[in-house]
Amino acid sequence: MTPETQISEYQALRNSAFLRRGRILAGIMQAALFSCAALSVLITGAIIWVLVTESLPFFQQVPFWDFLTDTEWTPVFTEAHYGILPLLTATFWAAGIAMAVATPLGLILSVYLSEFAKPSVREALKPILEMLAAVPTVVFGYFALLFLTPLAKQFIPGLSGFNLLVPGFVMGMMILPYVVSISEDAMRAVPMSLREGAFAIGMSRVQMAFQVVIPGAFSGVTAAYLLGFSRAVGETMVVAIAAGQNPNLTGDPREGAATITAYIVQMSLGDLPHGSLAYSTIFAAGLVLFVITLFFNLTGFFLRRKFREAY
């Protein structure tokens, strides 16, 4: 090889039309991929923008204080009240019942899967949970309204056809797979050495799970329940179908009451002229819902991240 051809090697490569086209394509694709990733930020931005601008007419008309304290929500009545409290309490009732179901069951299941089940058993059982997660919410709604509620009426006196109890229970089952999968991940991330230490001082497996693994995975497990709660708050179809669509400030979960999501569904089903006050009420309700879920999502996210960094 003569020096001349060598000197030009790098230059030749740099001048190669093929490689130059490749560099241009790579640059274009990098920009395209970045746009895809940046789009997610735009989506969040668009959500906030839409919720704020579309609910603005509502907040211009309704004093914010009334919105927070009025105990009635009757936006389409002639004597309209715009208190978010009835929707909010129903939402928290339903989500609270869901958590009351999902928390103990989820803890038992995730401890069982991460500490007791053999890997082969675990691999066989997880698909069941995934199948449960795959059932469309509208199907759960049907099941809650037309199967579980009539059934539960025989055992719970005073349970109305629309109520918060049954949909709350069903939502608990719905978020269970999600909660179990996150908290089991967290528990399995706890180092083996901690478990060995627990066994070495003579703990039983149960003691080890509850006194070592769960405290060790505490922030991860908590994150799972926060994220689960956020899901329950935002869940729509089950409550829209089975909890009724009547805003009702109630302390009794045997009664029906519209949640925030159920209210949005109910209004969307009717004719909702763009720009009317009724139209902007659903965005106001949506804004409240978004803020609540954002709070729980972010807390859950940072707890989870903190947990991951710890191990």
């Binding site: 020096p3 060598q6 090697e9 490569l13 740099r14």
Partner: peptide, 22 residues
């Protein structure tokens, strides 16, 4: 430096992809 032209392979101005091609 890649001889004989003395191209500095680790120079910032040299494209690493072209280095890997050589």
């Amino acid at each position: 430096e890649l001889m004989p032209d003395g191209l500095n392979l680790v120079s910032r101005s040299v494209d690493p992809i072209l280095v890997r091609l050589m």
